[in-house]
Every structure is written in C-alpha cells, then in structure tokens.
Design a protein around this nucleic acid. Structure first.
Lengths: 245, 245
DNA sequence: GCTTAACATTGATCAGGATCAAAGAAAATC
DNA sequence: GATTTTCTTTGATCCTGATCAATGTTAAGC
C-alpha cells in the first residue's frame, strides 16, 4: 500500500502534470513540499464523513475514491469518482459536504489547510489551476445529471462503461479503440449507487449488453469492447457529442 | 424589459454585492465598465445554444435563465437554474457546453471574453470570487444529483419547492417561515425538465401535496406554505441537514 | 479440501412513474 | 366578448425498474 520512497517527492510524483500543483514553478513546489504529507487507505475504508472537520485538502495520487451522499433511510447516491490527480476538499470551508470513501487501495497527498489557503493567495498558478479543475468538474457533474435524470437503465450502464473505457485509455496514453479491454473498478452495488439504480438492475443490464454482443465479460470485472461505436450507440448520446467529449 | 438608465453602472448595480465583481476595488470596477455591455431577452428566448462560439462571459442581473441539455430524441434535462448574480460562461473555453434559455424576462451584464480573461490574471479578486462561486455551484450540482438519482416524485417536488422558497426568502432578505407565499418561476414542463419527471407527474404530485395540506395554491403559480417543517419533512432530507443547507 | 463470506446472477412479482388521451382554465389575440 | 392558444389537470393503461427471494460463483481463511 505504501508508495516507493522515491515517489514521495514532487519531482517524481506520478500526477505532477495533471494535479492542482501542475503549473507550479520549482520554488513553489518546494513550498508545497513543506506542508504536504501522504495518507493511504485500504479499499473500502472511509477517508472523510460528511460534516467532518477537515484539516487538510488533498490530491488523489494513486487509486480511486468515491464522493457520495446517503439519506437517513440508507438510499445512497455517488456524486463523483475521484481518480488520480483529482482534488479533495475546498479552500475556505472547513467541514466536508460529502462522504469520501476509498474504492480501491488509495494514496492521497494532503496539504495542511491553513498554509495551503495562504499559498492560494500568494501563488496565482495554484488558484488558476484549481479554478480550471473545478470548472471541469462542474461540467462533468452537469453531464452526469442528464444520465441520472433522463437515461434508461441500459443507457446508464453503457454511459458508465464508455466513461471508464475512455478514462482507462487516457491513463494508458492510448485512444479508446475497438477490442479494448479494461477492468471495472466498481462492484455492482457501487455502479448502482453511481447510476441511481439497484444492483439487480445493474447486473441484468450488464448481462443484456453481453447477450446483445455489445460487450464481452472475462470474469466479473474484466470487460472487452469489440466495437466502440456499438457501445457508444447504446449510450443514447449522439455520435459527434460523444467524440467531442 | 430595459433597465433604468441609472442601474446601468456598476455603482447602482442590483447584484454588486454577490456577483463575480463583488470583491472589486473602484479602479477595478472602472476597468470592468470599459468591457461590459447589457443584453436583454424575453421569456422563452434562447441566450446561447450548446456548441455556440461565445464571445462573452456574463452575470445575470435580473430574471432567471435555465441551463439545459437535450438528447436527439428530445429528452431534456435542466442542469442548473441561473438566478441574479449567477455567472454564465467559462474563461478559457470558447464554446458553450449547454443551452442557456431565458425562463423569465432576463437582463445580463456581458463582459467581452478576451479582455475579461486578461483581467482574471491581473485581478486576483475576480479570479478568487469566481472560484468561490464555482465551488458553490459544484456543491449544488452534486446535491441535485441525489434528488435526480434517488428521490421519489413527491420528494423531488417538495425539494424543488423548498429550494424556491429558500431562494425567494433570501431575495427578500427574510428567512423562510411558516405561512410564506411565493411565485413559481417555472412552468410544469420546466419543473419536469429540472426534476427528471414528466409534466403530468409534476402536476399530479403538486395536486397531491395540495390535497395533503402541505401547500396551498392560489392560481397555478402562487404557492402558500402553511408549515415549513411539514414541507421539509416531505423532501426526504433529514432536518439538521436541511437547516444546515 | 472444506467452510465461509462477499459478490453476482437470475427469477417472480409489484409499483411508481411514463404514456396516451381528453378535458378544463387562463391568458392572449382578434 | 368570442376565439384561439398555451398551460394545466385528471383519467386509464402500460412498462421499466424496484423489490423480494433464491441460487450461483469466487476467493479467502482455516
């Protein structure tokens, strides 16, 4: 679960080109080094509960976390997936609005909150990068609202698979293509929480896509996409929109 | 539809304490004055279509606009309501990701995009305020995802009424209270587009809340809330969460 | 290898909200 | 004031996805 020691500096950091610190000059990184520390969590462990006081903000370095909300009666809605380079927390607010849970084994790079807030005002590059990332997140959240509000169960599953396929391709520095293979990072229940469905419906729709030849399954988690266009056609999005995204 | 002439300066602007420019010093406002112009739209008119090139960013001054997405087959999801002081557009991107439509008669204060982007880098107060507003919008969008993904039709309607009630009270500088009266700014169809429902279901659930004594209707648009707690109880949120929000 | 627990699939039935259809109310236009 | 248009309500029926229940699969631990 620990990172190799040589990765624990900003210079060797795997997310140095995407994270909130990606625009920083060497002297600014040195300042960040002074206020940072790493934390690791095993799959399933909570990172923060909604309402908790937060004494840090952080970047996901490796692994995946979920951002979610739960109602009194147990109904849960995932409101975001946090992937490497994504930012956790919010300068200027000290209690967390949502639960953060490690979906896979997870390592985050924490910055002490007060000093980070100070750097935000003195280092415009950090603030500008955070604004850019936040605007991107807002667009993604709004796109997901269409999925939650208007898509059918089958379209929801296809949309999720398409997103994971794209992210996976980006991570491997490849473009998504026919015949690609990827691993589902989520259980059926987590997929249900993300899509606003039950786990039974998720299972049934995955089976339906398999029977329809849209995907092939190797075990429960490994997915093969014989034709990317066929998968995208199932999402309900029009084609030029999905290539634009 | 036009604003009175004396409101057309930053010094008399009705949103000067909330908008993206609210932190600016007098000399910074003078710079903004140079690059701004007003536009007005009648209820129902489009402001921007998704994909359009945008030569400005803007603040809503008076009226309400909607931000929405439409699928090829006509399914529509509203992804945001833009109220006075809310910001339209995105520095650093020149095509609009969503449709913007005037819901009521609308006046916006436009800033030419290139000069505004220049001011963003030289005027940290503008960038800082925009970051704060964007983080708030992101939290709101994520809260709305719970409504879309997990709430029943009745809870969705109650949640929308509660939001409008709160905003209306805030606008009038009052706190929401029992017996309050407000006007619905949306048609049944727009409410349906916001909530991920059909207009028939919206109509039926509003009737059900009326028959249940949760609300009273005066005409189609005017709503009376005899007991705010009773309305909040119908939203499905737990009480301490709803007072926190 | 056996047991157990976690995760996933599949089946049967139910219900909430969609769809199709008609009629009512209010505002706009003539 | 009559007509038209837009918005809304209500009814009947249907269907998608939820719920309840059982079984299957895999991996971990002993």
């Amino acid at each position: 679960m620990d990172m190799p020691l040589d990765a624990k500096t900003c210079w060797n950091c795997p997310i140095k080109h995407q994270a909130v610190c990606s625009r920083c000059e060497p002297d600014e990184l040195t300042q960040l080094e002074d206020i940072k520390y790493y934390r690791s969590y095993e799959a399933g462990q909570p990172v923060i509960w909604a309402g908790d006081h937060m004494e840090f903000v952080a970047s996901v370095v490796t692994g995946i976390a979920s951002l979610s909300q739960t109602m009194e009666d147990g109904r849960t809605q995932m409101v975001g997936l946090l992937l490497p380079a994504d930012f956790i927390g919010r300068p200027g607010r000290d209690s967390a609005p949502f639960d953060v849970v490690a979906v896979s084994d997870l390592t985050i790079c924490c910055f002490r909150k007060r000093p980070f807030e100070g750097l935000m005002t003195t280092t415009p590059r950090i603030a500008a990068r955070l604004l850019e990332m936040t605007l991107d997140e807002l667009d993604s959240a709004r796109e997901w609202m269409l999925v939650l509000g208007r898509k059918t169960a089958r379209e929801k599953i296809a949309s999720l698979l398409a997103i994971i396929a794209r992210r996976d391709a980006a991570l491997k520095q490849l473009s998504a293509r026919d015949g690609m293979v990827f691993e589902l990072p989520l259980t059926r229940e987590s997929m249900a929480d993300y899509l606003g469905l039950t786990l039974e419906t998720v299972s049934r729709q995955i089976s339906a896509l398999r029977k329809g030849g849209i995907i092939e399954l190797d075990g429960k988690r490994r997915v093969v996409v014989p034709s990317l266009d066929a998968l995208l056609a199932e999402t309900g999005d029009d084609f030029d929109e999905s290539v634009r995204a």
